[in-house]
């Protein structure tokens, strides 16, 4: 297959030794197996996530994303911009749409960008890595590369909020998106049905409103457990972090005994494609995904 090249926006949490370092590593491995080249946007900045609003307001937030897109247009022309983080993707795509719908916003954004010597044209699509996999490859194609099927592992595909809403993947329902389950099955795993697939993990409020958010996290994990899942898989770094990191806290607060690994789809694909545990960055798990490690060792 021909090599595919994308303009890559890793985002803050996926930097080296940041909270989703393992996402970045496994994504790179996955791309190697799929013959995808990711050209990082030079000097990209933070997207503002969905918490920057109080101080940042509207236009400064749009300007953040516009700067990334302008840099991408300038340095990686002719490519689609691809993000792995749900919040990065959402902010970027949202800014893109706002600008597209209002000539005033376009000119204001460009006035601001001019201060940094940049200008935004709007000639690149803003996409999520999951879209690339589903739309540019497709499940049949993805299946073809599987060397070590994830036989017998039951996954709860946790899609969460921002990869799903408000944009989501074309053709998917907001209440029950199927692509993650399909991806799991394509890798030879088993996707269990459960009812908290698109429940909010609390997002940034896991930090500022811990009690309230941990109730969310508890519900998600509980439902995954109850439906027989051994592992959670997600496309979102915030989902991953919240659901994995706070399990200890949740156990303390609710008297539960949760200890379920939370992985990225990119880790699944890397392992299924024959990658090593290191390539899949399985050492980056707080709760070790031993069943994946076993397959990677085989």
């Amino acid at each position: 297959m021909a090599k595919k090249t994308y303009s890559f926006y890793p985002g803050c949490s996926s930097q080296t030794k940041a909270s989703s370092d393992n996402y970045l590593k496994s994504t790179n491995s996955m791309c190697k197996y799929l013959d995808i080249e990711l050209k990082e946007i030079p000097d990209w900045n933070c997207c503002g996530a969905s918490i920057g609003y109080a101080e940042g307001g509207e236009l400064p937030r749009i300007a953040l994303s516009a700067r990334n897109m302008a840099l991408s247009e300038q340095h990686n022309p002719g490519m689609d911009l691809v993000a792995t983080c749900a919040a990065c993707w959402l902010s970027t795509r949202e800014a893109k749409e706002r600008i597209a719908h209002s000539s005033q916003t376009l000119s204001e954004a460009n006035t601001a960008l001019a201060e940094a010597g940049l200008s935004y044209k709007g000639n690149q699509a803003a996409r999520h890595m999951a879209e690339v996999l589903v739309e540019d490859f497709g499940f049949d194609e993805l299946k073809r590369g599987v060397k070590k099927p994830l036989q017998g592992i039951k996954f709860a595909g946790y899609v969460g909020c921002q990869t799903n809403r408000p944009f989501g993947l074309a053709g998917e329902s907001f209440e029950n998106p199927k692509y993650l389950d399909n991806l799991v099955e394509a890798m030879g795993g088993e996707a269990v049905p459960y009812d908290q697939k698109v429940t909010c993990c609390g997002g940034a409020l896991a930090f500022s409103e811990p009690e309230k958010s941990q109730k969310q996290i508890k519900d998600i994990i509980e439902s995954a457990y109850d439906h027989g899942a051994e592992m959670i898989v997600t496309p979102c770094p915030l989902c991953q972090a919240n659901v994995e990191i706070y399990q200890g806290e949740v156990n303390k607060r609710f008297g539960t005994k949760f200890n379920i690994p939370v992985t990225y789809y990119s880790q699944l694909i890397t392992v299924a494609y024959g990658g090593t545990a290191a390539e899949a960055a399985l050492d980056g798990q707080l709760i070790r995904a031993t069943r994946l490690e076993d397959i990677a060792k085989k």
Binding site: C12, N45, A49, G52, A54, E209
Partner: peptide
């Protein structure tokens, strides 16, 4: 608290262009 966190987040990113998770937390 969310208001505080939101401001902190913004100030953190506005300084360097990227979020410094440790300082933030």
């Amino acid at each position: 608290t969310t208001q505080k966190f939101a401001s902190m987040f913004w100030n953190n990113l506005a300084q360097t262009g990227r979020v410094n998770e440790l300082k933030l937390s």
